[in-house]
Design a protein around this nucleic acid. Sequence first.
DNA 1: GCATTTTGCACAATCGTTTGAGCAAGTTAG
DNA 2: CTAACTTGCTCAAACGATTGTGCAAAATGC
Lengths: 344, 344
Amino acid sequence: MKKNNITIQSMAKTLGVSVTTISRVLNGLGEQFRISKRTIELVTTTADKLNYRPNNIAKGLRLKKSSTIGLILPDITNTWFAQLALGIEKEARKHHYNIFLCNSNDDIKVEKKSIALLQSWMVDGIIIAPIGLESEHLQKASKSGTPLVLIDRFFEGVNLPYISSNDFEGSMDATQYLINNGHKKIACFQGIVGTSPNNQRVNGYKQALKKNKIPFDPTLVIGDDFGFNNGYTCAKKLIKHLAKSKITAIISMGNQITLGVLKALKEEGVQIPNDLSIVSFDEQEYSELLYTPLTTVSHMNENIGDVALKMLFNQFGKSTRIKPKNVVLNSKLIIRDSVKKIAS
Amino acid sequence: MKKNNITIQSMAKTLGVSVTTISRVLNGLGEQFRISKRTIELVTTTADKLNYRPNNIAKGLRLKKSSTIGLILPDITNTWFAQLALGIEKEARKHHYNIFLCNSNDDIKVEKKSIALLQSWMVDGIIIAPIGLESEHLQKASKSGTPLVLIDRFFEGVNLPYISSNDFEGSMDATQYLINNGHKKIACFQGIVGTSPNNQRVNGYKQALKKNKIPFDPTLVIGDDFGFNNGYTCAKKLIKHLAKSKITAIISMGNQITLGVLKALKEEGVQIPNDLSIVSFDEQEYSELLYTPLTTVSHMNENIGDVALKMLFNQFGKSTRIKPKNVVLNSKLIIRDSVKKIAS
DNA sequence: GCATTTTGCACAATCGTTTGAGCAAGTTAG
DNA sequence: CTAACTTGCTCAAACGATTGTGCAAAATGC
């Protein structure tokens, strides 16, 4: 299978004009450089006829700019991230930018490799939802000239622009809601320890307890991953000692965790909210359609993709890194039927 | 913000060796070209120290090969496609390939543009879940030397390799299951008319009816999109005349359609399966956790990404296009509680 | 001590584009 | 008729890597 090798030069040869002329015409600079209408017409029509495709690689090399943006997400199958990716891709296309997609799979090694790879591709910028446990490699990338925007997760005290949700307040609200309904022993099913969403969410939970003068019990914070399995196994363990532990509610820090929990509870015949109440992070299309309609913390934003791109574009062409303006999206508690009011 | 411009040449100058030498060392060809250990050591350590990143764009230009693969999907927020994307990306990374992601958004114009763009990027191949209504642009791309693999949807009589699910049988099985449970008036909520999954699914539905000597009623096939809203509006209309129409079951041709249906039924207080039975395409993690556990047609395959990539790699370096070997994945009916047995 | 082989690199072309500079031919001004 | 200007292009360098060829200097053989 031989490649369709129509280049500017091959066309130049057959048409008897210079490559310069062709380049200019095809870039719409014909008039500006006084190329005659005849020639312009000639070039455009033959380019069209031959199905000429400019070689973006050559272009990128010459212009030292790839019109390409790297996107690193932990897991594209998580709807939250997928929606992000969709928004970013759509918006990027409007600006004639392409997206390089990398899944880090919540593996810091993969994340580092992905960054190196994207830099090798001379991407004009990177939007990343970092694992969140380390930030040196990100700072290094930023310093070496690759504009960066963090999304969903950020690092305290690190000067990198970010967009995130107000997870702290979201979590506080959710916990407060449980407390208002009489719950005091609330298990917290967490995601990856040390990541900023998890930190914030757990801290929000703690803060709500403190506010209400409920002593914080560290043994109630369990789990270590945002995945389905973590929720499932944590719930199974919890159920074993449910009566003894006197836990009446769960706050789940991620939608996948919640699905795992729901499966486990279903298998064990634990009723929601009669036997156990639950609130979950991450509103989903199906949240209201589950066997018990879920009370969730929603923190998605339709145009989060726009915002991320704008923050990236803002960094282009700036000679010095200005103090980044960060964006924090509000979260909202959506109340449904997964929490029972109990006597306090 | 100035770019980190460490190139092979800048290093050559500071080290006092030739670019050739550096290139060879960094590509692990040092020994082969008899570069002394001292020099190898020198080059590798300084490259490391300076945080040198090879310029893949320059490399791509020289080698006429980009080590990238284009991926065009209708909608990454559809979990089915997201899982596909994840699998492909993971597998591609193993082979040191990068993924260019494009969402076609089920818009043929965007699809065509995406192909042109990917060709401009000199991608080594394209994996695409096409809208499915036109194939000329795909054949053109393939003929012009870009290896192609179709996924999920294909074109009858067009010589392009594809991976798809056995949607016909899946649909037949599902419909047969409904029939076995006494249903005769079965509404079919379809996706985009003319696409191969939709064709196959609707045909499977028809075939099952025929087999059981149930006359086919075209007014029972409704809808025109794989999205949530289509399911929602179709269901709303259906419910209005539910009693009169004597429809007892729905077969939904996509998971998003189904969610829309479930929402509508819930709003209208229509009970599943008591008032209406339903089977749905696309098994999801949450399928069993919905307010009525869904009977679904599962047609996902863990390593579908591997397969797609292998089919693509197989085309690399082949001088002639060989007759493609297509892959059809089996589908499986997962029986849960959304179908009621009725007197027939 | 001379021819031959081995060692250890360097030269320069090349990939397909963009772009500042330049230049011949035609036109206009005075 | 000559100078100045306009028209309509072309030349050639550059971007950063790879790679076939070439060639001194050192080592070895006899």
